[in-house]
């Protein structure tokens, strides 16, 4: 497996007045293609900062972020937009679907952004939403909405799926189904899936677990035999 993402000595500082907050302090790690990665850490550890940097929503103070051989840290606004469009499939805690587009339209929206030839119906079917394609987000349950959001992310055929607490707003049963879906994508379709969460149980299902604390890497563990999500003790 080849390396997809590399963080090299990444530093992110936030300035407010005279005060400087170092949210990311010399972070180094790599993620391989097709890996199912869980990034763990308590609140305020820097999870969101890491996600924002990786997702191209924010820029580094220093250090390098190399994705598919490209130096993301040098990108300007336009290049970041292109980077997001091409490489990153976001899955948010609150789904962030476009409320006035149907499930299908939310997915097919991606054709406006990237040049892919997909069939929205098929993608929706693949996340278990047969028969829901003409419903609006408000007509779907939370779990269904998150599935639409996964379908939307997958439809772009991005280099990675970036999931920010994807089950945070769901009950545990629905959450398991969603995580299961994400794990399958990694295992069966060789999609790189990165989940940011504070839920340590998920660690056992990951190929790689990156723990962060106070803006630094605490540990990186590679699971030789990750468990299935559905087998975990919730």
């Amino acid at each position: 497996m080849s390396t997809l993402i590399e963080f090299k000595d990444v530093v992110k500082e936030y300035k407010s007045g005279d005060h400087v907050l170092r949210a990311m302090d010399n972070v180094n790690f790599t993620i391989d293609e097709g890996e199912f990665v869980v990034i763990l850490g308590p609140s305020g550890a820097g999870k969101s900062t890491l996600l924002n940097l990786l997702g191209g929503l924010d820029s580094t103070t220093s250090g390098q972020i190399i994705v598919n051989g490209e130096h993301v840290e040098n990108f300007n606004d336009n290049e970041l937009t292109k980077y997001r469009a091409k490489n990153v499939g976001f899955i948010f805690q609150f789904y962030n679907l476009i409320p006035n587009l149907t499930a299908l339209e939310n997915v097919e929206l991606m054709k406006d952004i990237v040049d892919v030839n997909i069939n929205g119906e098929e993608v929706l079917n693949s996340v278990g939403l047969e028969g829901h394609s003409n419903q609006f987000p408000a007509q779907l349950s939370g779990g269904e909405q998150q599935r639409v959001s996964i379908a939307r992310a997958v439809a772009k055929q991005p280099a990675m799926l970036l999931c920010d607490e994807p089950t945070g707003a769901l009950d545990s049963k629905t959450g398991v189904l969603i995580l299961n879906l994400l794990q399958d994508m990694s295992n069966n379709k060789n999609t790189t899936v990165i989940i940011v969460t504070h839920n340590a149980i998920l660690a056992e299902a990951a190929d790689k677990v990156i723990r962060i604390k106070n803006g630094q890497i605490e540990s990186i563990v590679i699971n030789e035999n990750p468990r299935k999500v559905e087998d975990l003790e919730w």
Binding site: L57, D77, T81, R84, L97, I98, P99, I113
Partner: peptide, 14 residues
């Protein structure tokens, strides 16, 4: 605003 932010995150150009 939120919708526009989402669209921007998804990769729509400004």
């Amino acid at each position: 605003e939120r919708e526009v932010a989402t669209l921007k995150v998804l990769g729509f150009k400004t």
